[in-house]
């Protein structure tokens, strides 16, 4: 028997792999976007600190910019360093 595929539709789903469901700063789901954005995905990425805590990039950058002196992780108060690995 010979089968001919006439057409097909590919569907994919994606999600961020984070150790939590929600961003601790804005409390929105990681699979959604930060309150300043409209669409989730690469335009509203997640970032990790070396302390392993994770936030929407826009949320953590806003927090760090509002701090004059110590740039600390909002979760553990360790000095915030982006984990580039």
């Amino acid at each position: 028997m010979k089968v001919t595929i006439k057409n097909w539709v590919g569907v994919a789903t994606w999600r961020w792999v984070a150790n939590d469901d929600n961003c601790g700063i804005c409390r929105m789901p990681f699979d959604g976007c930060c309150p300043d954005c409209k669409l989730p995905g690469d335009d509203c990425p997640l970032v990790w600190g070396q302390c392993s805590h994770c936030f929407h990039m826009h949320c953590i950058v806003k927090w760090l910019q509002s701090q004059q002196v110590n740039q600390q992780c909002p979760m553990c108060r360790q000095e915030w360093k982006f984990n580039n690995k």
């Binding site: 804005c26 409390r27 309150p35």
Partner: peptide, 15 residues
């Protein structure tokens, strides 16, 4: 709606 207001809605919901 602003980020602060949206956050406060979530705070209220959680409370």
């Amino acid at each position: 709606s602003t980020p602060a207001r949206r956050r406060l809605m979530r705070d209220f919901k959680r409370l």
